[in-house]
Simulated scan of single mutants.
Amino acid sequence: MKTIFKAILNFIPRPLLIRLSYIIRPILAIFLKGKTYTDPIDGRSFKTFLPYGYGIQRENVLSPSTLSLERHRLLWLYLKNKTNFFNDNLKVLHFAPEQAFYKRFRKLKNLGYITTDLNSPLADVKADICNLPFSDNSFDVILCNHVLEHIQDDTKAMQELYRVMKPGGWGIFQIPLDLKREKTFEDNSIIDKSERTKIFGQYDHVRIYGRDYFDKLRRIGFQVNEVDYTSTLTKDEIEKYCLIKGEIIPLVTK
């Protein structure tokens, strides 16, 4: 299983993976049904989750039903329990929409929900994050998760995110974050895909973010709250939902 998943992740283009997953997902959910782990996004339980990872694979992290990873389940719990996302009338911009969320967010009648990306088949608007086709102060909420590590000019991307967010608006900008690293590392001379996977953790990542990520967002103009939502959960809940203890949710406001 582990070898098969590694081959699929590394050799099948992501847009095609998204389409194929709609066929494979129901089969996996039935095959792995159990009571050990629960996906809070749809409430379904399984005897195990699936492995996932481009370089070093992480075991027991990918939900068979929603295809959510640890960060998606953490974000769902936070949005559900600590924000107005599911209740208030909000205009939302969602970058590179994740399958775990896409249809669920689309169905929420309180949201004016717009998705955007350059390549995703789930995007309403095909757009470059560094040159967005939206007016200033357009969105109450922006979700931009595990996107910025792919962008060469992340400063420009952050400036665009700030520009299109309404004053008083908020967003969540998750990234792969190495909390042990003070400074972000990037090296544009590394172009080999296997070398990028080895150094950055994924072949299409261009940097490893350190704790200075939060200060960079602050320099753009955002107020930043480094939220450790797992600190409010029990050990049993963290294990049940297969979360990463101590994972930080970057909550930004304008």
Rank of each mutant, 00 (worst) to 15 (best):
M1R: 04
K2D: 11
F5P: 01
A7F: 11
N10K: 14
R14E: 15
R14A: 11
L16P: 03
L17R: 15
L20H: 04
Y22T: 10
Y22F: 13
L28R: 01
F31T: 13
G34S: 12
G34A: 13
T36C: 12
Y37A: 02
T38F: 03
T38V: 14
D39N: 08
I41E: 01
D42R: 02
G43H: 07
F46Q: 11
K47D: 15
K47G: 15
T48E: 15
F49N: 09
G53L: 05
Y54L: 07
Y54V: 03
I56D: 11
I56P: 03
R58W: 06
R58A: 11
E59R: 04
N60C: 05
S65V: 03
S65T: 08
E70H: 12
R71S: 09
R71I: 05
R71W: 10
R71H: 14
R73Q: 08
R73A: 07
R73M: 11
L75H: 13
L77W: 02
L79I: 01
N81H: 09
N81G: 00
K82C: 11
N84I: 00
F85S: 13
F85T: 13
N87W: 00
N89C: 06
K91L: 05
V92P: 01
V92M: 04
A96W: 10
P97N: 06
E98M: 00
E98G: 02
Q99S: 12
Y102E: 11
R104E: 12
N110S: 15
L111D: 05
L111P: 10
T116F: 04
S120N: 04
A123P: 12
K126Y: 03
D128Y: 02
I129G: 00
L132M: 13
D136I: 09
S138C: 10
V141R: 01
L148V: 00
H150E: 08
I151N: 14
D153A: 04
D153C: 05
D154Q: 11
M158C: 14
Q159N: 15
Q159Y: 10
L161W: 08
L161E: 10
R163M: 05
V164Q: 10
M165A: 01
K166V: 03
K166M: 09
P167L: 08
F173Q: 10
I175D: 06
R181Q: 15
E182P: 02
E182W: 00
E186T: 12
D187G: 09
N188T: 13
S189L: 07
S194P: 01
S194A: 08
E195A: 12
R196I: 13
Q202F: 01
Y203C: 01
D204C: 05
D204N: 10
R207L: 06
Y209P: 03
G210R: 08
G210F: 08
R211W: 11
R211S: 14
R211E: 13
D212K: 02
D212V: 12
Y213R: 05
F214S: 07
D215P: 02
D215A: 10
L217F: 06
R219H: 12
I220C: 05
Q223W: 00
Q223N: 12
V224K: 07
V224C: 05
E226C: 01
V227R: 07
D228L: 08
D228K: 09
D228S: 08
Y229A: 06
Y229M: 08
S231A: 15
T234N: 04
E237M: 10
I238K: 10
I238Y: 03
I244D: 11
G246V: 12
E247M: 02
L251T: 01
L251G: 05
K254C: 02
